[in-house]
């Protein structure tokens, strides 16, 4: 009985259609558990829309709206505005999009919604490429990473989506990852407490696209944080930074060596990634007052 009363209520059920060991599926489960069953979920073409499964064999136990690729944010904005018109103010609207749907094709519409401070929680499930169509580069793909359209390694840096969202001065933005479930769920709780546009950038390792063994998603997520490749922090009102996990500052090889997409890297590239991680962490510390 004790176990029954303490076990959290799951919104995402078993029987989803993710690849084995999928980090996005784990992330969705954690986010939705914190969100609760009284909620509405919008999703756009991405791994999320595949993972949630075809109705009625669907893994999500809440109303789901599958929208077009470039419009996760405005679809959520329409729903939350309509709730307001009808006097409903206790149903959070959450939008899931992938990194392509957020960093690339959906950025314009996300910016518009954030500018209006439309009322929804936006969760970017970042697996750092278009995994759904077979691992093509996105602007969330890190420098040097192999993808099927960056066959000699990505030449661009990963876009700093958190800085873009902070520049909109939205009430709440945070990074999170499946390697730190407590931190992640706390951030969803915090997002629920405020109104307006709330943004979660969720690193979701992809064993298929990152060329790892199936059990490596959580481990690689922890390594991303502990090497300062993906620090955990939150930003209130676009200016107030708080680091939520002090990392061990491990060398970046700890993270890179887990993944086949980096196996072509030489010492120079690794040094460059290391210095970028060091700078990210130092910059973040300056902002964390």
């Amino acid at each position: 009985m004790v176990a029954e009363t303490t076990r959290p209520q799951e919104v995402m059920r078993s029987g989803h259609s993710a690849c084995p060991g999928c980090g996005v599926a784990m992330g969705m489960r954690m986010v939705l558990r914190a969100l609760g069953t009284r909620s509405v979920v919008v999703m756009v073409p991405s791994c999320v829309s595949i993972i949630s499964g075809p109705y009625p064999n669907a893994a999500l136990n809440v109303p789901v709206f599958h929208s077009a690729f470039e419009v996760a944010a405005p679809t959520a904005a329409g729903i939350s505005n309509a709730f307001k018109v009808q006097g409903i103010d206790d149903i959070p609207v959450l939008a899931f999009a992938g990194d392509g749907g957020t960093f690339d094709i959906g950025l314009q519409s996300l910016s518009g919604a954030a500018d209006r401070n439309d009322d929804f929680i936006y969760v970017c499930m970042d697996n750092e490429a278009y995994m759904n169509t077979g691992i093509q580069v996105s602007s969330a793909t890190p420098r040097f990473a192999w993808t099927s359209t960056s066959p000699r390694g990505n030449t661009r840096r990963k876009k700093q989506i958190m800085e873009i969202m902070a520049a909109h001065r939205i009430p709440y933005a945070a990074t999170a990852c499946i390697g730190f479930p407590d931190d992640l769920e706390k951030k969803v709780e915090r997002a629920k407490e405020v109104r307006g546009t709330r943004f979660l950038h969720l690193l979701s390792p992809c064993p298929t696209g990152w060329k790892m063994a199936e059990h490596m998603a959580p481990k690689s997520a922890v390594a991303a944080v502990e090497t300062n490749i993906f620090p955990l922090y939150e930003i209130v009102d676009g200016v107030q930074y708080t680091i939520t996990h002090i990392s061990k500052g491990l060398p970046v090889e700890t993270y890179l060596s887990l993944q086949g997409r980096y196996e072509h890297l030489g010492a120079e590239e690794i040094r460059s990634i290391q210095s970028e991680a060091d700078r990210t962490w130092a910059d973040l510390h300056k902002k964390d007052r």
């Binding site: 094709i105 077979g134 093509q136 099927s148 359209t149 960056s150 000699r152």
Partner: peptide, 20 residues
């Protein structure tokens, strides 16, 4: 100038390796 979408992605994938 490409963008991935099934079932055309392979055109972009192939040409991304061939163009250089």
């Amino acid at each position: 100038g490409g963008y991935p979408i099934t079932p055309a992605t392979e055109i972009a994938e192939h040409i991304s390796a061939r163009m250089p």
